[in-house]
């Protein structure tokens, strides 16, 4: 079984050791400040964004796209239409920085509770649904990519 992508594993290890709530919040705000880097470019999509890219259950109106790279990995792009969707922006940045370019098989191994490791267990239900929805959407793209290009772990058929 594939492990989760190494960059994400390192990030999760850092968050799981973080006990100071203010430190966690400030770090997530700093991460969200990099959101423009992961914003979907015009060549991929422009407003109004298609409904099939909208994350179900995300009240911040987050959208996710995936672009195939030459090495068959995926580059993820995001949009967050609610200007107050800071947590969704932070999540988008984290997933771009740790999952873009990672083997799709590894992306599928990311557990849902990674969201709690990152944001802490105080997440409200509504917020966790939205953030887990972003992860689910990223994993759906990875699943589709494996179906399209084959799973190298399965070996030759």
């Amino acid at each position: 079984m594939a492990a989760i992508p190494e960059k994400l594993a390192r990030l999760l290890a850092m968050f799981s050791g973080m006990e100071d709530r203010s430190e966690r919040i400030q770090l997530l705000i700093d991460i969200a400040d990099r959101f423009k880097r992961v914003l979907v470019p015009e060549r991929i999509a422009s407003r109004p964004y298609p409904k099939d890219k909208l994350v179900p259950g995300c009240e911040s109106q987050a959208y996710v796209w995936a672009e195939e790279l030459p090495d068959r990995t995926l580059k993820f792009y995001f949009a967050v239409e609610n200007p107050q969707g800071i947590s969704a922006m932070a999540t988008s940045v984290i997933f771009d920085e740790t999952l873009s370019g990672a083997p799709p098989e590894q992306i599928l191994q990311v557990p849902k509770d990674a969201i709690y490791t990152i944001f802490g267990n105080e997440l409200s239900m509504g917020k966790s649904m939205g953030l887990m929805g972003i992860l689910a959407m990223v994993q759906n793209y990875a699943r589709q990519q494996i179906a399209r290009t084959g799973d190298p772990a399965a070996g030759p058929s």
Partner: peptide
């Protein structure tokens, strides 16, 4: 807020 990131931001 629901989102604890909003006020500090």
């Amino acid at each position: 807020n629901e989102d604890p990131l909003l006020y500090p931001a």
